[in-house]
Simulated assay, not measured.
Amino acid sequence: MSTAANGPSKDWPGSESGRPPDSERPALPASTEPDQGLIEDVARRKGIKGTRTGTIWTGLVVGIVVLLLLLVFILQNLDEATLELFAWDFTLPLGVALLFAALAGAAIIALAGAVRILQIRRAANRQRQLIE
């Protein structure tokens, strides 16, 4: 028996590490050996699927961050701005006026998207009726 840096080990012929070759090592029962594919998938996060709760949580956090950024933007732009629309004159803080403009733009985009969704839904219903 020889003594290695890690402690005593048996000299196995043809083995530089002093360990028995794989063919002579005792095999673990199949139920206790980990599945290598599963370990690799979990390590790459492929085995963990997203949930609705996780998606809602992520959306909530992103929404809070956006609201905080908007609040900071509005508080930093409190200078009065005079807006004219047709015959009306408005005096608003600049940050609030820009926020209203962004909301109006988002509403226009949402309206255009809703119209397109309705068009596609009608076309799909017509196609379904033709097939039946």
Rank of each mutant, 00 (worst) to 15 (best):
P93M: 05
V72I: 14
D35M: 08
A124N: 08
I117Y: 15
I64L: 12
L83R: 12
R25D: 00
V66E: 11
R44Y: 04
Q127K: 00
V72W: 15
V115T: 07
I117M: 15
G95L: 04
T58G: 11
V42W: 06
L75W: 08
L99W: 02
R19W: 14
A43L: 13
F73W: 06
I108A: 02
W12V: 03
K46Q: 10
Q129N: 15
T82A: 09
I74R: 00
I120H: 02
T3K: 14
L130A: 15
F86M: 13
R25N: 05
V61C: 10
L118F: 14
T55W: 12
A30D: 11
R116W: 08
G113T: 13
T32E: 15
N125M: 14
A114W: 15
R121P: 00
L67W: 09
L118T: 14
R19N: 15
L60F: 04
L94A: 13
A30Y: 05
R25V: 01
I131H: 01
K10T: 03
A107I: 03
G14N: 14
Q129E: 15
E16V: 13
Q119G: 02
G7E: 11
P93E: 00
W57R: 15
A114Q: 10
L38S: 11
R116V: 13
T3R: 15
E84Y: 06
L69M: 13
W88G: 02
P21I: 03
A123F: 04
Q119A: 03
F73T: 11
F73M: 10
S15P: 04
R45C: 11
I120Y: 05
S23Y: 05
L69W: 10
A106Q: 07
G14H: 06
F73S: 08
E33N: 10
Q76Y: 08
A104K: 04
G7T: 06
P13Y: 06
G50C: 07
V42D: 05
Q119S: 09
K49S: 09
I56S: 02
Q119H: 09
I108Q: 00
I109P: 00
F73Q: 08
V65M: 12
L118V: 14
G63V: 10
P21Y: 09
R122T: 04
I108P: 01
G14C: 08
Q36R: 14
G14V: 06
L111E: 13
S31G: 07
R19V: 13
L70D: 01
L68E: 11
A87Y: 05
Q36D: 05
S23P: 03
R52W: 11
E33W: 08
L28R: 09
G54L: 03
T91F: 02
R44Q: 15
F86N: 15
E84S: 07
G47D: 05
L103G: 07
A5G: 10
E84K: 04
W57T: 14
W88K: 09
E24T: 12
E40F: 10
R45K: 12
R122V: 02
R126V: 09
R128F: 11
L130D: 14
F73C: 05
P13N: 09
L130S: 14
S31Y: 12
A43H: 13
D11Q: 04
R52D: 12
L85N: 04
